Amino acid sequence: MRNSALSSHHQIIINLLSCFIFLQAGIIHVESKVPAVIVFGASMVDAGNNNPLPTISKCNFSPYGRDLEGGKATGRFSNGRIVTDFISQAFGNKPLVPAYLDSSYGIEDFATGVTFASGGTGFDNKTADVSSAIPLWKEVEYFKDYKIRLATLLGKKAAIKTIKEAVYIISLGTNDFLINYFGLPDRSLHFTLKEYENFLTGIANNFIVELYRLGARKISLGGLPPLGCLPIKRTLVAGHACNEEFNTAAKSFDMKLKSLAAKLSGELQGSKVVFSDIYHIVMDVIQKPSLYGFENVKNGCCGSGRFEVSYLCHRWNPLTCKDASKYAFWDAVHPSEKLHFIIANNMMKTSLTEFV
């Protein structure tokens, strides 16, 4: 029985790694009516919108991007591609979703996918203020501008069709808790944790209703990862164990987002609003790293992997690992390219099947 179980585990690893290699090569994709992948959110799905901004939340320098083709640091908080890049390619579109504020791209590039995400932002405007990031309402304004430019490129009728059939990926909330509620006194003095969760959920509700009004119909509302298991939080706990207070908060907020997605999917006629669970796939990787081919899930690859992120993760740090594929995290907060792929692959097999 034990040998059979080990054999099964080895086969899972082989299948997963093979799938990773194939998707990297652009072989695996699904046939679907998805003309574009349109992204809103924070650093996990930012592909360089923060590059021109006066913010400390930047990564347009090495070793970020070292495993991308050409080794270029694009502004992705990763050693390589990110979750939305993999999702775009899995839907049969391009392998890199460009940042809207990246001047090296034009509307022709954005027509099949674009990200408005900004590292350091959140649902809460005060969260964006802390990092001088793009607030969520401004991401919506960029989307409105994008619609006008798209209509000029494709014509009004074709643009409306693209907007309607595109898949919208939303990835927000981590910074609202890590940076804002637990990191600064203002929100925690005025809200209990449950009240703050409800406050954010209300913003999420209004945001999705606005996207629907602007033409969006296929919407994925992403949940939080296990916040207490991020390397930057494990550093503060004896034995580098996960911080259960943060994990409990993430699970509680996820339940509210899941309920919100179901409610809106029923209320917004002709729409599909799905909840994309990030927490459980990341936790499974953390609890069973060898099953996924990881050797380290406690530290990031960059530097000591305990606290380095953004400018603290730099090319001159001699401690940075040589092979990021052995690490679940790239820096102290963000997934490695390989974990980004695992998350994307899980989403494609679960919540995003609604849009295939």
Score class of each variant (00 low, 15 high):
152 T>D: 14
64 Y>V: 03
282 V>P: 05
160 I>N: 13
166 A>L: 03
271 S>C: 10
89 Q>F: 03
140 V>F: 09
12 I>V: 11
107 I>D: 03
333 V>D: 01
324 A>K: 11
57 S>H: 08
27 I>A: 05
324 A>R: 11
97 V>K: 06
289 P>S: 06
275 F>H: 06
218 K>M: 06
93 N>E: 09
256 K>Y: 11
217 R>V: 10
220 S>Q: 14
268 L>P: 10
330 W>S: 04
6 L>F: 14
306 R>M: 13
77 F>A: 06
272 K>I: 06
167 V>E: 01
130 V>R: 09
228 G>H: 09
355 F>N: 05
355 F>S: 02
337 E>A: 07
292 Y>H: 12
126 K>E: 15
282 V>Y: 04
276 S>K: 06
220 S>N: 15
195 E>C: 00
214 L>I: 07
352 L>D: 08
186 D>I: 13
177 F>D: 00
237 V>G: 03
165 E>G: 04
280 H>E: 12
271 S>P: 06
86 F>N: 08
29 H>L: 00
173 G>A: 06
88 S>V: 01
261 A>L: 01
274 V>Q: 02
168 Y>H: 10
40 F>D: 05
337 E>Q: 15
147 K>E: 12
153 L>P: 08
186 D>R: 10
79 N>T: 06
207 F>W: 07
78 S>C: 14
